[in-house]
């Protein structure tokens, strides 16, 4: 397909893709291949990186293996990022689709609802939700999904509003197609490109949100995560800067690679560039 071809010619996007692929592999197989718990005390505390070949990245304030923490953290970051984005899409797409397709008071009502969620400072809302419902993977994922669906709804609504008056949609109406068919088979497939691009950027934002929450101590106490590692090392940054530095770098790399990929997707899927018209 020519989208994949265009994307594969975009070097920057490909760098993003490969870095991301590596992180995905680590998330999937790392905990199986790397023998070691992120919670167990294995060495003296504050072991600097590259001194002990068994614990390549050293140990933290409690003598726990940093590399193990990093590997387990990859899994949770990507998982929370993906799942919360999926949930946000599941809320945002139908809402935006209904508002945009039917217009009128349905639109008015749904958009006022969306507007409230968009006004509330999202990070603060996420904090409040996680704090009230006790920190856990579930509450964190739901909180992130709850604060990140409004842009999806607005985007989908905009797409549906402009596509619903396209002549091929009118033709489908004249064919006697049902609303469901028109939404699912005529409009949605043609509005997927911007949704895909937005989704890839949302995963990045979700990963940042998750790490910020864990940094504030709102992470799942059962699970090792990058944000938690930085938060725990915050007070000892003068003695052991690498304890904050390494997980931060992992977050930045993941988010950056997602953004690069999203950017590349945007260019590949941009209707202005891809052959919407002949020639």
């Amino acid at each position: 397909m020519n989208i994949i071809k265009t994307l594969s010619q975009n070097k920057v996007a490909m760098v993003g893709f490969f870095v991301l692929a590596i992180f995905c592999l680590i998330a999937a197989f790392g905990p199986l291949l790397y023998d070691g718990s992120p919670w167990k005390m294995v060495q003296r505390p504050f072991l600097p990186p590259f001194e002990n070949s068994n614990y390549l990245l050293g140990t933290d304030t409690l003598g726990r293996d940093v590399l193990a923490g990093l590997i387990y953290g990859t899994r949770i970051s990507l998982l929370v990022g993906l799942v919360s984005t999926l949930i946000a899409l599941l809320i945002g797409i139908p809402l935006g689709a209904y508002a945009g397709y039917f217009g009128g008071w349905v639109d008015e009502l749904l958009m006022r609802f969306t507007e409230i969620f968009q006004t509330v400072p999202s990070f603060a809302l996420a904090i409040v939700i996680v704090a009230i419902f006790e920190p856990s993977v579930y509450s964190i994922t739901s909180a992130i999904a709850i604060v990140s669906w409004p842009p999806v709804a607005r985007l989908v609504r905009g797409e549906f509003m402009s596509l619903r008056s396209q002549e091929y949609v009118l033709a489908a109406k004249l064919n006697g197609q049902t609303h469901r068919n028109i939404i699912m088979r005529e409009i949605l497939p043609n509005s997927l490109s911007p949704i895909i691009v937005l989704a890839s950027l949302m995963v990045a934002t979700a990963i940042l949100l998750e790490s910020s929450l864990s940094f504030l101590g709102l992470g799942d106490p059962e699970i090792m995560s990058w944000g938690y590692m930085i938060g725990a090392a915050k007070t000892v940054v003068r003695q052991a800067w690498w304890l904050s530095f390494i997980p931060g770098l992992a977050i930045a790399l993941t988010v950056l690679s997602l953004n690069l990929l999203g950017e590349g997707l945007n260019e590949a899927l941009n209707p202005k560039m891809s052959g919407k018209r002949e020639n």
Partner: peptide, 22 residues
């Protein structure tokens, strides 16, 4: 801008205070 867009705010803050202040 892509790099700053991807960097966690709290991490940047810690690194900046470490470098410029400590």
């Amino acid at each position: 801008s892509l790099i700053f867009y991807a960097t966690p705010l709290f991490w940047l803050a810690i690194m900046a205070s470490l470098f410029f202040s400590v």
